[in-house]
Design a protein around this nucleic acid. Structure first.
Lengths: 149, 149
DNA sequence: ATCTGTATGTTGTATTTGCAACATTTCTAT
DNA sequence: ATAGAAATGTTGCAAATACAACATACAGAT
């Protein structure tokens, strides 16, 4: 039970730091999450992005809309599937990417201060497993089902 | 850099599940965080609670206000220090505590599925270290300072 | 060819979140 | 003793968040 709390606290703390620091490049709360992934996965669609970040579809939709309005990304229609809109970074979007990466690298360095390479490695492996475990339940519940326990 | 993303994703996912599930006991988004800690630390003050959870002071203030309005907790003045207000769970608050614990235990079990006890242990230890590393920066920045990197 | 279900996206609305700015009380250093 | 700094709490406002409900397009089965 304590694991979850630690994870929650760490995540809030880092998110809070990121949000403060990314104001400098005109990204408001939460937007860096989407921005960085669109840069790394150009052409990704909204729905998949929301799943990747594990955030509500509608929240993602609005964050992405703002990113488009601000000129960080652009939505392109797909001819073979008229439902989807592919997301691409603009020049402006690409120009903030290195800033985001630098911040993330710094935060990571802070978070892992005092960790040996092995320890950092072990932690990453364990976290990946936790994520995989958790995402099943998330998708299940987000599709409207109810966990029983 | 990947560590942070995994942590963020896991945290959002679990928080999202918790928020959905705690509606059942009339706790709205985020309130479980405060509720559970007030039960475990009766008499804690708002400021310390915000630090413990690593959330903005004003966000905590409002969540706590709502908890009081809904009768889950009660604020008591302190005679020796007129600034602070100590927080205590009411009967109603205490009555939802076991529900929260059960949910957390379930989520933890899901998150750690397939983990040996050793692995779970290692993960917890590593997470605690990460939290300690991160909370320094958080307090620094939350006090209005700017990290340089 | 049509019906039904699912995938994807949007809008309406209520709530939470968080910065900035403030008020009050306590603490610290002179 | 007093001025300034820090701790604690609140309020105003702007923004993000998320549920519900909807719209449209596609996919699969009959």
């Amino acid at each position: 039970m304590e694991h979850l709390r630690e994870i929650g606290v760490i995540a809030r703390s880092l998110d809070s730091l990121s949000n403060i620091e990314f104001k400098e490049v005109d990204l408001s709360k939460g937007q860096y999450l989407y921005m960085v992934r669109i840069c790394e996965n150009p052409g990704i669609i909204q729905e998949k992005l929301a799943e990747m970040i594990m955030v509500d579809r509608t929240t993602a939709a609005r964050a992405i809309m703002k990113l488009e309005e601000k000129g960080f990304i652009e939505k392109r229609d797909d001819e073979s599937n008229r439902r989807i809109k592919k997301l691409f970074p603009t020049e402006k979007g690409l120009s903030v990417y290195p800033f985001i990466v630098r911040e993330h690298e710094h935060s990571n360095a802070v978070a892992l201060e005092g960790f040996s390479e092995d320890e950092a490695d072990i932690l990453l492996r364990l976290l990946r497993r936790v994520r995989k475990n958790v995402e099943k339940d998330w998708e299940y519940v987000k599709k409207g089902n109810k966990r029983s326990y």
